[in-house]
Structures are given as structure tokens and as C-alpha cells.
């Protein structure tokens, strides 16, 4: 976890895969190197500035079910690992 000190307030930057059920985050960077996966996630609405909530976690702990843009999307931890969010 990185804590960035802004001039006004403190931002908590976290990997999206580290969020717990019920926690929300605002996407600040998408670092996915695989072009196909990145485009797919962009198309599904995971763009910078999007607020996502961890809704459910699969019984075996992976993938994770996110709620965003009033629908639910399941993604594996290994991909969420490469997305940075600001915890809100």
C-alpha cells in the first residue's frame, strides 16, 4: 500500500485485488501489459475514474465479482493485481 500525501488530503492507493468485500475503489491506473486483456477490461467499463465495489468473492477465493456501472463483472485476482485504485 502506498500513501500519497496530496497538498490537501491523504490518498490511499491500493491494488484492486487487495480490496475486501464491500470496499470501494476509484481506478487510478491500469497497468495491464497484455493488450487484449486491457482492451477487454476497458470495453467493460474499467476506465480511469470508474468507481468499483467488491461485491462477492468466489467460494474458492478467486475470481472476484465487482460491481460497477450498475452491473456485475467477475475477474481473476491476477488481473486485478495490475489495477491501482484509490480507496474511497
Amino acid at each position: 500500500m502506498i500513501v500519497e500525501r496530496d497538498s490537501k488530503n491523504i490518498k490511499k492507493i491500493e491494488k484492486l485485488s487487495n480490496l475486501k468485500v464491500g470496499e470501494k475503489g476509484k481506478i487510478v491506473a491500469i497497468n495491464i501489459t497484455n493488450k487484449i486483456v486491457k482492451r477487454h477490461l476497458l470495453d467493460m467499463g474499467l476506465v480511469r475514474g470508474t468507481v468499483v465495489e467488491v461485491k462477492k468473492i468466489a467460494p474458492m477465493g478467486d475470481p472476484i465479482d465487482l460491481s460497477l456501472r450498475s452491473y456485475e463483472l467477475c475477474i481473476r485476482k491476477s488481473d486485478l493485481n495490475q489495477i491501482d485504485v484509490e480507496v474511497v
Binding site: P63, E72, L73, C74, R76, S78
Partner: peptide, 9 residues
């Protein structure tokens, strides 16, 4: 090795 799972619920 690389694979993903991206699916609407």
C-alpha cells in the same frame, strides 16, 4: 500460461 477470466454475472 497466460489466461484470463472476464465474465458478466
Amino acid at each position: 500460461t497466460s489466461s484470463t477470466y472476464i465474465s458478466e454475472l
